[in-house]
Amino acid sequence: MHETVVAESILKTILENARQTGAKPVSAIISCGQFNVLNDEVMSFAFETAAAGTFCEGMTLTVKHIPMRATCKQCKTTFEFDIYHPVCKQCESGEFDFEPDAPLLLEEIEFEENE
């Protein structure tokens, strides 16, 4: 699955950052939207596999899921979109425009403190 490609891509970035800071990375947070969704278990496993034997081995990875949002054409309310109940949360209208889906982001890396 494409989690493998994502894992390799973030591993590369984290290793580059680790080289610059000289500290050991302990955890990282990535985020994804709803149209580009990552599976949590597959992602953890893919990252663990990619990180094995590198400076990143043993790091924890957290995936944040950003909900899809839409804006109602009738009442202009922006609401969290639910595919199983696709209507405006305010006025129940079915006419709305999607806000752009959240991209795949490497949000943050946490490094061990150097004493």
Binding site: V5, V6, S9, I10, T13, N17, T21, A23, I30, P103, L104, L105, L106, E107, E108, I109, E110, F111, E112, E113
Partner: peptide, 13 residues
């Protein structure tokens, strides 16, 4: 120490 990146992951593609 936390480093905030907010970097696109599939940017090379």
């Amino acid at each position: 120490m936390k480093v905030s990146l907010n970097q696109k992951i599939l940017s090379r593609n």
